[in-house]
Design a protein around this nucleic acid. Structure first.
Lengths: 278, 278
DNA sequence: GTAGTTTTTCCGTATTATGGAATTGTCGCG
DNA sequence: CGCGACAATTCCATAATACGGAAAAACTAC
């Protein structure tokens, strides 16, 4: 017999890691993240992952014990816990990138009065690591720190994608293809934009997903490291003329260059201080 | 024999949850969070938790697979991964509190030019859920979004503690007692401050941990819910006189009241929109 | 070039998580 | 107000899972 009739040759599910408890926990947290507002109920979660109710319950209880999951006021529904926020803070600080870039973001927001973002790659997504609010809050910009965006969608995210090696770009495009339509774009569009960025070294676009909103982004590509991050700005198109926008672009490129230079020096990342507590 | 000589009666470690893989993962991530900058190496992590090297390796590999852990450039050291940042963003948005409070923070920062924080309880800690940067960046304020502070230390954190039921307060004070000295304070001081807040309903202090830095905080105590959050402001004392500080306090109390009112209405939390992507 | 340390892989074992079944709790409807 | 249906929780025997010792490989230091 050429094929073993009983033992299927272990189909390697890309979502599995070798430790199922972890896979399941990750799955649960993922579902909880999607579940909006009122939280998710046990049975849905269990069904969503193909778990028995008892297993789901046991895992959730353990997660709750660690503060990774909370029960919504009423008592019966689950939601992501605040302990995760703390972990993430440490993760964001971990590379030191946020600390290094914050002054740049502050300066950019100060000069322009617009909202600036620091964005980093995370697998197939880009994640907002820091954000400085501009003078005018743009209502539709709901992506705060921790916001996830498919790699390629949006200015900063596209800039990061554009600075990946070609093979990597193709992989991402293939993997994210199905998600693009949900975000009002397409693989073709993303590819075009990426090429544009590779050519120019930046993105400055008047016609973002939201009409009247201009976007701008510059990738941060330090020499030695492979941190691929980007600085992005979103602003109301009508508030500035083309000259002003190009001025902002210049500032952003300057800040990016400064950060790249700082990263080139070993030990450049400033150390944290533990006092000064709100 | 009165005591069983072999089977110790399962000493219930408060850090254990019933699922050891999870406990160990939490432990690993905790250590990784403390490990600064260059990351942590496998052997230290394993030793820190009393694990065999192989177990630690297997767990870390699985975590890396999920993006919860990354390997620092060189290749051999570990650090927290960006996927956690994404999770946290969802956690922070989960309650809807951040979305609800952001306009308030923006207004407060706009009026005062100072940095404002939204802080929420997380177990024995308070965690910074949102932060709006003031016009002047105060260098020593390193606590960005996700920053962890022992409950009772710092203005916002103390305000949250003060709004807990008395028994709870005692528990927290007992548990956190040993940590206070590390943060330049003491259980006695914290208790005094908490009583002050309970009496006044707010905290306005000129003598924070950092000289020349004034702090201000107001708890958010919605009627039905038990969300205990706080708004805090840190500002340079010399930039304002006492009258101005009291004006800011008034604004903050007003915003807190507005938020409490909004929380009282069911369905008050605004829904997220998925467009508007940096 | 060699000795020592750290990381990674392998694999038999027993500890651990599993899920079916039973119990308790909660909600909706007659 | 009480019954029926559904969801959550607890219990427990089972086997699948994660464990860690040992050996190999990779890397560092000397």
């Amino acid at each position: 017999m050429s094929a073993d009739p009983i033992q299927a040759p272990a189909p390697p599910d890309p979502a599995e890691s070798g430790i199922q408890v972890l896979d399941r926990v990750v799955g649960l947290l993922g579902l909880l993240g999607e579940a909006s507002e009122g939280g998710a109920q046990l049975s849905r979660l269990a069904a969503g992952l193909g778990l028995s109710a008892s297993t789901a319950h046991r895992l959730l209880a353990a997660l709750e014990h660690h503060g990774w999951v909370e029960r919504v006021e009423g008592g019966r529904r689950y939601r992501l816990g605040t302990a995760l926020i703390g972990l993430a803070g440490q993760a964001a600080e971990g590379t030191g990138l946020r600390r290094l870039c914050r002054p740049a973001l502050t300066r950019l927001t100060g000069e322009s009065g617009e909202t600036t973002f620091l964005i980093v790659r995370s697998g197939l997504n880009a994640v907002v690591v820091d954000r400085q609010e501009g003078a005018y809050v743009i209502e539709s910009l709901t992506h705060g720190v921790g916001g996830l965006i498919p790699l390629g969608v949006g200015a900063g995210s596209a800039a990061i994608l554009a600075s990946q090696p070609p093979a990597e770009i193709e992989e991402v495009l293939a993997a994210n293809g199905v998600r693009y339509p949900q975000f009002g774009t397409s693989g073709v569009q993303v590819r075009r934009r990426v090429q544009q960025i590779q050519q120019d070294g930046y993105l400055l676009s008047e016609d973002s997903l939201i009409s009247g909103l201009a976007v701008l982004s510059v990738a941060i590509r330090p020499a030695g490291h492979n941190v691929t991050a980007a600085i992005a700005m979103n602003f109301i198109a009508s508030r500035h003329d083309q000259a002003a926008r190009h001025a902002f672009l210049g500032l952003a490129r300057q800040e990016a260059a400064r950060i790249e230079a700082a990263l080139a020096l070993p030990g450049s990342l400033p150390r944290p201080s533990s006092i000064g507590v709100p």
